[in-house]
Nucleic acid binder design. Sequence first.
DNA 1: CTAGGGTTAG
Length: 508
Amino acid sequence: MVCRFSTRLLNISIASLCKTQELNKAENALIDARKLGYSPDIVTYNTLISAYCRFLGFDAAYSFFYEMSDALRQDRVTPDVVTFNSLIAGATRDRLLLVSLFLFAKMLRTGILPDIWTCNTLMNCYFKTGQPQEAIRVHQNFLLDGLSPCAATINTMINGFCENGYVSNALRMFWNYQRRGVSLPIITYNILINGLCKSGRLYEARNMLKELEKSGHKPNVITYTTVMKCCFRSGKIDQGFKIFRDMKRDGYTFDSYAYCTAISAFIKVGMKKEANDCTGQMIKSGIRLDMVSYNTIANLYCKQGKCLDAMSLISEKGSESDEYTSAILIDGLCKTGYVDKAVEQLKQMKADGQKTNSVAYNCVIDRFCKEGSLESAWKVFNEMDVKDSVTYTSLIHGLCKNQNFSLASKLILYCINDGVGVPRSANRAVLRGLRASGAKREEKDLKSKIRMARYLRRFEIKRKNSERITLPHRVKPSPGLSCNVAGNHCAGLSSIILRSLGTGSYTL
DNA sequence: CTAGGGTTAG
């Protein structure tokens, strides 16, 4: 009895240390507890594994799991379905599809029955790696094996559809449940509002918000943050700030998502005082500042011309930084006249083997263009392996500034052929230049091509918005692939693994 | 334990 109580106490302590991201302390607590003769159970280990996955990545979690295998044996603790679900979720977070599938196979082989959360996590993994068809297949196979979907299953599907551009499938699923009188949690509404906003379907997003209110839910911080962000990205700036003020008035607790959304919008529209005040509030509120919060603060510093402060903020804090951090700092350097330093940083990034950061490159190219150093801009341009709309826009404007309208015109044609859209302002600058330099025929030609491309794009958006995945036929369990787990035939499941892992290389 | 919102460039 005493022992059980101690284990629970240990688990609670470890869980709270994990929550505050004090993983070293959590692990030490486990080590100390074992020395003192307390016995951790599977919950203790699961808590640590999922915290490792979340904060340090899958590799760290898996090494921990591996290093702990002796301890697990000594404590007579065997991994359970939660252990594997957590590991699979960790692999999913790092987009390691094959690792997820491998873990799933290992789980079945160990004789642990998957549950509905295994299904949710595997589906999520397929959606996140851009394979909605396979996600649907997982779903069907799990239902076939007798598991019933839970709310998270529906949410994972709806969200996965939205993320992969099949908002219509998501909506259809939502209305199907709605019609059957299934009450869906607020998360479902938030997912749909976000999906509709991001695909530019603002009218429907608005209706979904009304639908949420009809359902009896009260919009939460996430709902408001989603809608606020949607306003900013669609240019309804005042409406966005109104939501911000309403949230404050109604006493919603701001988290770092809400703060960062508002702060970034303030910065973008040049409301310096508000940006500063809001940042001050965020810091004073005592919420834990994560990487995105630091990126946002660094961006504020840079936009105030204090990019050296931004750099020391990031380096003081030590560890975490990502491609946003580099882009923010490099842009800061460019805009305060340290282009050479920015170029140095680009080289450093490449040397460090970081994944290509086109935003950072775009910042430098744009700076060179604005300075009129077209040659330097081309040099950076040629070092990029993925060019995008912003890259071309900067160059087009740069070329126009240098009176090289025919090359600018060629770039626009190249973009049209490649399906890369550039803003109207870039098109206009080139057309104007061609006209002024007397190239009437070229101007007319370009104009009609731009018009045609615009028409085709609108058409494409319309088509895409109504696109739906057709569901595959139900897969019949095939006895040959049957994987008998504790008397349960996981036929559909094993076929998923075999299909994805290829033939022969893995035995179940 | 596992699902939803936030940060960069023209």
